[in-house]
Nucleic acid binder design. Sequence first.
DNA 1: ATTTTAATCAAGCGTTCGTTTAAAACAAAC
DNA 2: GTTTGTTTTAAACGAACGCTTGATTAAAAT
Lengths: 233, 233
Amino acid sequence: MTGQEKKDAKQRIYDAAISLFARKGYAAVGVREIAKTANVNISMICYYFGKKVDILKAIINECYDKYYQTILNIGDESTPTQERVRLIVRNLVEFFRANTELAMVALNTLPIDIPEIMELKIKWMSRKSKATIELYTQLGLDTNDVVKINVIRAVLTTIILEHFQFRYAWKHIMQTPNKSKYTREFIKQETIPEYNDAFYEKYSEILAELYFHGLNSIVAHNPASEEGNNTTK
Amino acid sequence: MTGQEKKDAKQRIYDAAISLFARKGYAAVGVREIAKTANVNISMICYYFGKKVDILKAIINECYDKYYQTILNIGDESTPTQERVRLIVRNLVEFFRANTELAMVALNTLPIDIPEIMELKIKWMSRKSKATIELYTQLGLDTNDVVKINVIRAVLTTIILEHFQFRYAWKHIMQTPNKSKYTREFIKQETIPEYNDAFYEKYSEILAELYFHGLNSIVAHNPASEEGNNTTK
DNA sequence: ATTTTAATCAAGCGTTCGTTTAAAACAAAC
DNA sequence: GTTTGTTTTAAACGAACGCTTGATTAAAAT
């Protein structure tokens, strides 16, 4: 009760940063804005995190950590293939639903010109590649076919992330008080459901269906006019 | 020959901005850096574009304009469905291939806190929604089923964009002189093909396959335990 | 020959950036 | 009640930010 009622300053800074980075992007948010949102002094950020980029590091680490717990928790090779696909879709959807802003920041931030972030992302992507190979093999996919791998590499994550980004943007569009002509027209034209449990149950089911049958079709796909240029290391 | 040899200043500013925005993100790039890269004085940017945000507007407009030329150029309803899917995938891949940086900037920039950009994007997205309805109908998709629409809404664009973002990032990873342990390990572990015409022909074919069969599976999908909660406006 | 227009430049406006410092406030421990 | 270590504060550092100004140049139009 001695001030434990409110979250400690570090957590408030962290939460404010996630929220602001998600909405504006990492570079567009200043430390002063984070401090103000978190109701702390500017130098608290330095005190708890060091540099601004260290907040981003913490965000990326938390996100990928949770992300990999998610995709690893889909049973082993004894589980039927379609069931595993259903599980991975369902888990991913739940992950993004529970960590929308966290995932938006971690997955959207362009790392190319921030070497430390680039390295961090590469470290995690390296893990992911290894983790997914096993699933691809079970699906019957030729993991030496670089084209097929390039097509499906990040399909699931990307599709789901895009959905939550659209949902996130939509929420902000609706909250904007003064809407332009185009915006009002767009709102009228789009049919947006309630994003509740029922929606995401159906969403996961349909996405799993699409993913499973899509994958099966390219596993079976062997073009006639192609010689084996699939192991071009 | 009177200085027409080099592109005019406005074009140099525009090209520099696209390249820098793609690599670092809009907010992380300053006008001074754009001017320096374009080899012009800072005030030329104001002279030709006005505000910094006006460069972004021009980029977004050019991108979406080309984008819609692309997705509209896939024949009409008399064209066989699978052929139209093949066409739209092929065209989209060619579009992203020819305009990678332009598309990265236009599609990745977070618009929520820049009202003018938000409006611009909404204007274009509104057009897209209308344009794709016709194709969905031909595919046999129930366009009143908000869940199915939510699943496939931006699937194609998102998948292809992700591929080119990965390719873009990979190029920069390889160009970095001092690579860390993780990076070297990642490079060794990944098999990256030559991204030439042959690759993208096969890539388009496989993606079209995945998309077509995935779509067909969800068109046919009618869950038993669901009553009609699909018109929840 | 004179005026108009378009293009370019150096310099600087006020503001905000990420970061740091040194000291105050506070807690618990002795 | 003093000490000790943690948390918080105000103030300020130099650098970079977006943007503007006023002068200069060269070509075009009159």
